[in-house]
Simulated assay, not measured.
Amino acid sequence: MTMQNQLWFNPEQSLTYAELCNTLYERELARLALSPPEQLPFLPRRLKSLPFYVREAATLILQFPSPLTLDSQNACWLHSQSKQCPVPHVDESASIFSYYSKSAKLGLLVPVYVQPHGAQQQGVQQIVLDSVDEIDRDGQRIHCNEHGWFALAGWPQEPDNQHKLLLKPSKSVLTAVCCGHQWRNGERKTPRLLSLREMLLASRLNWQNFAKPHASRPDELRPGRVK
């Protein structure tokens, strides 16, 4: 699978690119194999587009390096894990509101804290990455592609996301996101591997300015394409 923009890769990058493509492809195929029955009609289209998104993710990862250590053989980033989940332990809604009031725009990458709830009270804490796909300036809220509506101050706005919180991006928060760090009952758990969609999002992070993520192809993250 050769791409036009692979021509600028040096030999080491070409090897890394191949490792990333192989691992991402295998991992996503395994995930698609577990698709619920209601998703089976969409499976042929997703399989058809899979090579494109795998190549896109691998290219973006090499084009926009992060300060984290890349493990290309396992298609993941590595960094030491903090003892506790880096979610704010004090009310930071004013700071979050200030950030999103100024920086909210379509395509902005945002971290969302997910805490155990309901039958999952003993589940894991984690922070995941999403992107803004709608902005309601009058209502002072933004809609995240996967996790729904949040107030600009970070509070959830829908019944289905009451166990979530929109966070302000920071290096510690986004390190936890990209490395798949997890915690349970205040203890560190084994990091999870990110999905292809999450890798596509994370590869666009601009670590010098989180409010200005790197560009991607316009149709890359439309709902229904990579989930």
Rank of each mutant, 00 (worst) to 15 (best):
W149T: 07
V132L: 02
S131Y: 04
K102I: 09
G107P: 06
P116S: 13
G148S: 09
S103V: 04
Q126M: 13
Q157G: 13
N145W: 03
A153T: 12
Y100I: 00
Y113T: 01
G107A: 11
F97K: 12
P159E: 08
Q125R: 05
F97R: 14
Q115W: 06
I142F: 04
H143K: 13
E158A: 10
V112M: 07
A104L: 12
G107T: 10
I96V: 15
P116Q: 11
Q157M: 15
Y100N: 02
A119N: 14
D136M: 02
D136A: 01
S131A: 13
Q121P: 00
L106D: 12
V112P: 05
L108N: 09
N145K: 15
L106Y: 14
Y113C: 14
L106F: 15
V112K: 06
G123S: 13
Y99A: 00
R137Y: 01
E146W: 00
E158C: 05
L109N: 07
G107E: 08
Q162Y: 05
H147Y: 14
G123Y: 04
A151H: 12
Q115E: 13
Q121H: 11
E146V: 14
V124Y: 12
Y99N: 02
I127M: 03
G123P: 06
G107Y: 06
V132H: 02
L129C: 07
V112H: 08
Y100Q: 00
G139K: 02
N145H: 11
L129K: 02
H117R: 10
L129E: 01
A153C: 13
Q122G: 13
H163P: 02
E134S: 06
V128R: 04
L108K: 09
W149H: 09
S93N: 10
A153Y: 11
L108D: 11
Q162D: 07
V128N: 03
I127F: 02
S101V: 01
W155G: 07
Y113V: 05
G107Q: 08
S131E: 08
R141Y: 01
H163C: 04
G148D: 07
Q120C: 06
E134C: 06
G107I: 10
V112A: 08
G139P: 03
Q126P: 02
N161G: 08
D130W: 01
A94P: 05
D133P: 03
H147L: 09
L152G: 08
V110I: 15
P156K: 06
K105H: 15
N161I: 06
P116A: 12
D136Q: 00
V124K: 09
S101F: 08
A119I: 13
V124P: 01
Q122S: 15
S98H: 15
L106K: 15
N145E: 10
F97D: 06
D138T: 04
V114E: 09
R141K: 14
A94M: 13
G148E: 07
V110G: 06
A94D: 15
R141H: 02
I96A: 07
P159L: 11
I135D: 01
N161Q: 10
I127L: 03
I142L: 15
V132E: 00
H117A: 14
G154C: 11
A104M: 10
